[in-house]
Design a protein around this nucleic acid. Structure first.
Lengths: 157, 157
DNA sequence: CTTTAATATTTTAGGTATGAAATTTCAAGC
DNA sequence: GCTTGAAATTTCATACCTAAAATATTAAAG
């Protein structure tokens, strides 16, 4: 009787499988991202980075420092400057001075910004639901569990 | 006897779960991408987009048209122009005229480009293996299967 | 006090990305 | 042959993004 091997004799294939996994992960998230970007542009004339910044601000009504935003979104500090500038110009966000510290500013959504984001967020959730509609509850659960595992193993190394 | 419900009474939680999944997917691929970008820069003074273009060219020794590259990598045509310009300046790629069609050019890696990419690709595979080392064969297999499913369901809609 | 180091942000230089308009060339149809 | 439309690429304007340098402020150590 032939049994399936309990251990792998060579590690080489596993490294190839990891590479295959990474390429698929990259492709999938790129496809979804492109589609979201397209709709955000077509239906709201907005962009993903702006949505991300507004989303972060929305979760912190008391405001966030520039560095807090860039840390949360894992993008460079200098980048956030430009995006917040734009949001401010359009009256969606504003910089508030911090009493005890003249270096820092708190960025906050304006009322107009909150309204705009609520609309965006509602549409965004519907879009994601549509795009991922091919997945049932088990699929979703399985992927979330594995992504958590992967995420954890990456972050702690 | 109480049986588990065959259908969900409310769809709302599933849409939230899909959103959760997307955010995790985005975060994970971002973390991996950032790490690869960092190493590419630190160890080779190169970038991910250049690596991607070289990788595509490497798989097609007979050359690729600009539009073929942009289709493969799902980036805009105008973008590829700049990257190929840079690769050409550095002697890693070159444009070859197409005999029957004076509109198109075939882009091809030079010998130097092939050597450079081979080195990059070898390092890249090791990096990915390291970064994903927390996953065993079953994890990898499970994720690949689900990503294929998702990918398929997105592309065909 | 004053030097020093750390923190918070902006600026700068350069590469990457998009969509749209412009250019050149090709392929038919008349 | 000439026009029309499609195809391949580049150019353009604009936005994003990074790392690194510059600026300004705070805090702490001597």
């Amino acid at each position: 009787m032939i049994t399936k091997p309990a251990i792998r004799l060579a590690c080489e294939p596993l490294s190839k499988e990891r590479l295959r996994l990474w390429l698929k992960l990259l492709k999938t998230s790129g496809l979804i991202e492109d589609e979201l970007r397209r709709r955000l542009r077509a239906e709201f004339g907005s962009t993903l980075p702006r949505f991300d910044v507004m989303s972060a601000l929305s979760r912190s009504p008391d405001g966030l420092k520039m560095s807090e935003i860039s840390k949360m979104l894992r993008v460079s500090n200098g980048n956030i400057t430009g995006i917040v500038d734009k949001l401010s110009e359009e009256g969606l966000a504003l910089r508030v001075a911090v009493p005890g510290d003249r270096r820092a500013h708190l960025v906050r959504l304006t009322k107009k910004g909150v309204r705009a984001f609520d609309e965006l967020a509602k549409a965004h959730e519907v879009w994601v639901d549509e795009i991922l509609s091919g997945l049932n509850a088990d699929d979703i659960d399985g992927m979330i569990r594995r992504l958590d595992h992967l995420n954890h193993s990456i972050s702690e190394d």
